[in-house]
Write a protein that binds this DNA or RNA. Structure first.
Lengths: 143, 143
DNA sequence: GCAAAAGGTTGAGGTTGTCAAATACCTATC
DNA sequence: GATAGGTATTTGACAACCTCAACCTTTTGC
């Protein structure tokens, strides 16, 4: 069983992630959103309508799943489906005014650092941010 | 909108977490496990039987949910329910031989660092591990 | 003893996710 | 310009996951 620093980091990362997910889930529940719906809202661009298929890619899930997700968001008046002019197969998703407002609340909840991170010394927080920024850069380069 | 280093770190953390979850989900699917079942397996101690209620706490979910989760694990012969001798209300969960073996595979999958982290310089990996270790310590102190 | 509390299950109901098939539309080709 | 094949989305079937309220059994405190 190899336990490199990367492996140890990964386990810790995971543990914090699970706690954070539970905490965020509770806060999102109070906004009347499930985790998936909130994540979908977060991924939509308030300025630029996005095809369903693009949303499915960003959510790493099946397109048919997005249909249901968007059904619920649309039923609550948060997003609108509009057929694209140039290709009538695609439905472009745009946020309503209410959608933008709720999305802002979601962003606030989801970017609220959990206890574990909030309690770190300032130097650790900065170092963490910098390292994770490099990690995300790797992510984009690979994808 | 306050964007402190902790907030920025949190957003990055979240982004990596989502990718990692998708990746792990696929690998776990090949083991025939959903994410929740895998997580439950991970939480069980191979040496020390654990009451259902304790598992529910560790999973941050309702006890009735654990019933279903354990039903499925038991149906596959991975865990056993056994009534505790001193208190016949509690059912102690113990892993079968097959359960221990599969749990090991789950641990391997879940602690495999994602691309993003694996590609970091060694110094960053060590620093990340150290910072997250301090963060988890905060977590336990608070809880 | 007996009421209250604790551990677990059950049933109803909603969300989330997958897959396969259907629909509607676009595009290239003969 | 008809037709074959590909793409975007939806639908339906089905399973996993999750919560809540109600229930049964056992334990505990009085």
């Amino acid at each position: 069983m190899a336990t490199t620093p990367a492996h140890e980091a990964q386990k810790l990362f995971f543990e914090i992630g699970m706690v954070q997910r539970a905490r965020a889930g509770a806060a999102l529940g109070e906004l009347g959103l499930g985790f998936a719906q909130a994540h979908a809202l977060r991924m939509l661009d308030p300025d630029e309508p996005m095809p369903m298929s693009a949303l499915a890619e960003r959510l790493f899930c099946d397109a048919s799943n997005v249909t249901g997700l968007v059904d619920r968001l649309e039923a609550r008046g948060l997003v609108e489906r509009r057929s694209a002019a140039n290709d009538r197969r695609v439905k472009a998703l745009s946020l309503t005014r209410a959608g933008v407002a709720l999305r802002d609340q979601v962003l606030a909840v989801m970017s609220e650092p959990p206890e574990a991170i909030a309690a770190l010394p300032a130097a650790d927080q900065r170092a963490l941010r910098d390292i994770l920024a490099r990690a995300v850069e790797n992510l984009r380069a690979t994808a």
